[in-house]
């Protein structure tokens, strides 16, 4: 399945400056594995040491947070769009 992956500005330097990349994968995990295989600098930003989605990253498949679907096992269809969003937070 060919899917589009949208990258936030802060990660683009590690993907040759691209805002959107196209990857193949039947699941989000497969598409991310293909992504970090091509752009290894992204791995630490997306996945933790155990290979799970990093807690400071949110990933949407179209309009849905994959944490409320099947996480990295979420199935993908042709033309799906994955949006990677950094968690934006702070406090006193």
């Amino acid at each position: 399945m060919a899917v589009e992956i949208k990258l936030p500005t802060v990660l683009r330097a590690q993907a040759d400056g691209q805002a959107t990349v196209s990857m193949d994968g039947a699941t989000v995990g497969e598409a991310f594995n293909a992504l970090v295989a091509r752009y290894p600098g992204l791995r630490g930003n997306l996945l933790d040491d155990s290979g799970s989605l990093h807690k400071f990253v949110n990933v949407y498949k179209d309009d849905d947070d994959i944490r409320y679907l099947d996480g990295l096992d979420t199935k993908l269809g042709d033309g799906d769009v994955l949006s990677i969003l950094p968690a934006v937070a702070g406090g006193v």
């Binding site: 949208k6 936030p8 949110n58 949407y60 309009d63 947070d65 949006s83 969003l85 968690a87 934006v88 937070a89 702070g90 406090g91 006193v92």
Partner: peptide, 13 residues
Amino acid sequence: TYTVDPRDMLGAM
């Protein structure tokens, strides 16, 4: 503390 609702961030993007 604050955390921007990621759905709002998706909308902003």
